[in-house]
Amino acid sequence: MLNYDLVIIGGGPAGMAAAVSAKDSGIDSILILERDDKLGGILNQCIHNGFGLHHFKEELTGPEYAQRYIDMVKERGIEYRLDCMVLEISPERLITATNKKDGIFQVQAGAIVLAMGCRERTRGSLNIPGYRPAGIYTAGTAQKLVNIDGLMPGKRIVVLGSGDVGLIMARRMTLEGAEVLAVAEIMPKSGGLQRNIVQCLNDFGIPLLLSTTVVDIQGKERVEGVTLAKVDEKLKPIPGTETHYDCDCLLLSTGLIPENELTRNMGAEIDRKTRGPVVTKEFETTIPGVFAAGNVVSVHGLVDDVSKEALIAGKAAAEYIKARA
């Protein structure tokens, strides 16, 4: 069994900032466990710019922003393991994880920072009626396919939901030669950043249809079309307002959910509204010595805020460890 003063679950922006901050607060024994094959988390697929304006006072792309922290982690000699999935964490902070190289292994941590990020809401949880053909993707999955794998999941696209990922992907797909027919938003206003509405939709002539949702998906094998309809103030579709769109792909950008299966199984209290753990202002959960930072706590609009919060959590975890040394 391994022993570390601090183990950080997740090597995205939150995890890396927490590690850097803990190291700078005097903790040397730190291990980051990352499930992907590189550090950086979801920033790696966010190849657009607009990151870092607050935190680094300059405009960076996602991978550039990630690289700043990857460099900081490496400069400080902080240990990390990649392709590594944490299976379980006990309330006593015993972590069970697995990867190809090390097999199943256990780590006893003096303190933990949870930084698992969030996942996207899916078609299933939205209860959109219709067939279940190929061609329905969450915007983030499409982003991974296009930006990392160079694969286009569709050519004629309707986007449901005007979250930032959806807006970004409307532009991205257009730039890669697809036709984005519309972005539909069930609410009377978009939840995305104003600058994204301007730069991703308006500049490309993509219509944003407010108070509109998908009421049917056609196509038995591959998406062949969707039906959009206006909704009333209770968000119920209004009969007679249906419009059909011929498309081969439906992208969903309808919200992000903090990923807290590990947190919940540890027994930490979860906030029903944010779906993240209940935390103090030092970002300690209801389990002593277990901290949480970034989108695992609540979904943030800007990565800059994630870094800021994680720096506090990392420092607090360091103080916790030092107090018990």
Partner: peptide, 8 residues
């Protein structure tokens, strides 16, 4: 039921 329509 193709998942990918074009390889960039």
């Amino acid at each position: 039921s193709k998942l990918i329509l074009e390889n960039l």
